[in-house]
Nucleic acid binder design. Sequence first.
RNA 1: GGGCCGCUAGCUCAUCAGGUAGAGCACCUGCCUUUUAAGCAGGUGGUACCAGGUUCGAGUCCUGGGCGGCUCACCA
Length: 514
Amino acid sequence: MPLSRVISDGRKGRRKVKMSDAKSGGGREREHRIEKLEKIRELGIDPYPYRFQRTHSIAGTIENREQLIAGEVRLAVAGRIMSVRGHGHTAFGHIKDDTGTIQFYIRDDQLDEHEFGLFKLLDVGDIVGLWGVLFTTRSGELTVRVANLELLAKSIRPLPEKFHGLQDKELRYRHRYVDLIVNDEVMKVFRMRSKILETMRQFLLGNNFLEVETPILQPLYGGAMARPFVTRHNALDMDLYLRIADELYLKRLIVGGMERVFEFSKDFRNEGMDRSHNPEFTMLECYAAYWDYNDMMGFVEEMFSTLATEVCGTTDIQFGEHSIDLSPPWRRLTFFEALHEVAGEDLRASGEGRLEEIARSREIDLEGISGRTALLDTIFSELVEPALIQPTFITDYPLELSPLAKIHRADRGLVERFEPYIAGFEVGNAFSELNDPLDQRARFEAQAELRKAGLQDAHPVDDDYIRALEYGMPPTGGIGIGVDRVVMLLTGATSIRDVILFPQMRPEEGRDGA
RNA sequence: GGGCCGCUAGCUCAUCAGGUAGAGCACCUGCCUUUUAAGCAGGUGGUACCAGGUUCGAGUCCUGGGCGGCUCACCA
């Protein structure tokens, strides 16, 4: 009896699970298939053999079709049966591997009896290996004429319907393997994701960055304003945090003399979930000694135009209704300049009263918002952000928002920080990194005060990080890039769940009741 | 957390005002040696998310719960 069934027995509010692992899941068809599985075994055939030697991928077969047909080459391909059209003594169907789909043609007078008997016990969804030569059908389709076939894995669960496929988003996320089998565009998105990561990595390695790995389990979290997940280490008898950022570790490495480092960091933030937030997500952070944030801006422009060129073949990409030009240089605008544009006046010196007036006149909801910084931030995200469609660097933020960034060289009230915006998304966050240990301690202590005042997301003081800075960190430019959002941008996905293979979901069986 | 919407066969969906659930695909049986949403004939398949309630009778109405989608808020 399946474990899930045992656990759920007697539990109130149990949800019926579609395609469950219970015996009823998959309906009668699953039982038919298990019967066929037994018959296959009775024929002395192992329905789950150990390997298969392919001569060609399906894409390779299609690519070399002329030589393969002309030479009457006996080839071996393998894949999942996606359709079968039986005609008594013959059958057509398609198999699919991860390079493509090809038709096969099988007829009983060209196989030994044994093998055609096996074929009759196969189903859509089974994984097979086929040997044969290529030909073109009357209707012009490239087809493998099967001379021999081998079952490589029996599928006992039916695939979704061939025409509509799997639509239900819940099932698509929960049973991503099925989604990948039947929805080709899903496979395409995740191939692009891989390509994006690879291009980023190559770009960084090509610029002499060193790829490193830093702890996910941290005794003290930091590097961002967010609530962490807490976990427990039994042997040490202590709580640990899942990292919310790897920033403070990477800068320790800069102190240690690694002059350019990066990490693809799985980060975890214990907050709400929506179209652009998953509790675990991927951040690319990179730090370069002797750079400031201006150097980093140039680097980011280069990286994104390289990405778009490698992945999409052009720096002009389409996202929803927007055409976006990622080629450098990008527009650069300070935080207060951007506000000036939308508010029609310089807000740099405006008091709380004036900021509230402006917000109200634009019908911005100010519930729970108090203080000048929060007002500025709110006005910015309501009025400025949505309009930042073409790539734009917003620079020089108010000091209060950025405890890890260096004071602006020309203005003590600002920090040297920028955020790249594309299609209204904030895709990163970068600073001239604060390397004055005494200033850093003062900033941490200011955060600690905010924490005491009830701001849970404020930074805890990280004494070891300050000690590292006390040994001396060179001037450094750093950035964190939200990789999932970049993937959304380049694939046109409108939900982060469409670029994460297994997005966080509540368990199918529902929450544990009393 | 709020609002709206959804949950019916393996999948995609019907079921007008409450009367004991239906189609297509898939599956099973038979026929069919170049088909391709193959075709023809016949057939199987349901705890209508769960639990209560109203009613002679509930997929349908009411209450509570579960899961999801969209959206707003919170949150970087």
